[in-house]
């Protein structure tokens, strides 16, 4: 998912300068996980803007309804057409995808040219949880993990080297640019050692093919996921998660 944090209020107010009537819209996707676009965040933002003398209208998207998924968020936009029409700007509490997809929809599909302003800064594609996340993949279009024991050097190495480690590794195998972070290439070495693949380590890997990341990348799928089918399909998993027995993987492992 996309990690994010809210922009400083002064910056947001700067963008809203001269815009009196504002729609504040949230996002039920990543921004809900990061509390930068859930119901509470939308309410708090509305409150702050009201204190600044703005007239605010709120649009909250339910959990799992992402601003960037226009098939769903479009329903809320259409439902609130009049409010959007009558406001000076939309403040979108999502990542940059949500901001642009919604702006495009309001402009092209609804025929309303309107400033759509970002409330958040997107910080990267991350995994992990529930409280700690890290950026491990940058969607470069040409996955190198098969060559590097499953650790992406383009993302995990500060220099994005394909053949590290560099000469700047600190004591404790930490990164040259951040002593809090591990050296990706020492990690790769240790993992290859564990997997008995150290012979791969001394092979030179070719420079990365950046042509696969030629921006902007556009995609098309033949069979889009149906909301209802997807929802019903996900239900058994949720039920098992709530009432089912906890997995006992550790014990099973010990028993062998």
């Amino acid at each position: 998912m996309i990690a994010q944090e809210q922009k400083p209020m002064e910056e947001i107010l700067g963008y809203l300068d001269g815009k009196q009537k504002v729609v504040v819209m949230g996002c039920g996707g990543c921004a809900t996980f990061y509390h930068t676009g859930d119901k509470k965040a939308v309410n708090e933002m509305a409150e702050k803007l009201t204190k600044e003398g703005k007239e605010v209208f709120k649009i909250v998207l339910p959990f799992s309804f992402q601003a960037c998924d226009i098939d769903k968020s479009g329903i809320w936009l259409e439902k609130n057409r009049k409010e959007i029409e009558n406001r000076d700007a939309v403040l979108l509490m999502s990542c940059g995808d949500g901001v642009q997809i919604v702006a495009d929809y309001i402009d092209e599909k609804m025929g309303i040219p309107k400033s759509v302003i970002p409330a958040n800064d997107a910080l990267g594609l991350v995994g992990g949880g529930p409280t700690k996340f890290k950026e491990t993949c940058q969607s470069c279009g040409m996955c190198e993990l098969g060559k590097t024991a499953g650790i992406c050097p383009l993302t995990a190495c500060g220099k994005g080297l394909m053949n590290g480690p560099c000469g700047g590794v600190r004591v404790g195998n930490k990164c040259e640019i951040d002593e809090e972070k591990d050296c990706a290439w020492v990690k790769i070495y240790e993992r290859m050692e564990k997997l008995g693949e150290l012979d791969k380590f001394i092979e030179m890997r070719d420079p990365h093919e950046w042509s696969k990341a030629k921006r902007p990348r556009l995609f098309e799928i033949e069979n889009p996921v149906n909301i209802m089918t997807a929802g019903i399909g996900a239900l058994p998993g949720f039920i098992r998660l709530v009432i089912g027995p906890k997995p006992k993987l550790e014990e099973e492992g010990k028993g062998e």
Binding site: P207, H208, E209, W210, S211, K214
Partner: peptide
Amino acid sequence: DHVSLGDTPDAKP
């Protein structure tokens, strides 16, 4: 020009 137009298209622009 974007690097992809030339003879080293895999370069990082």
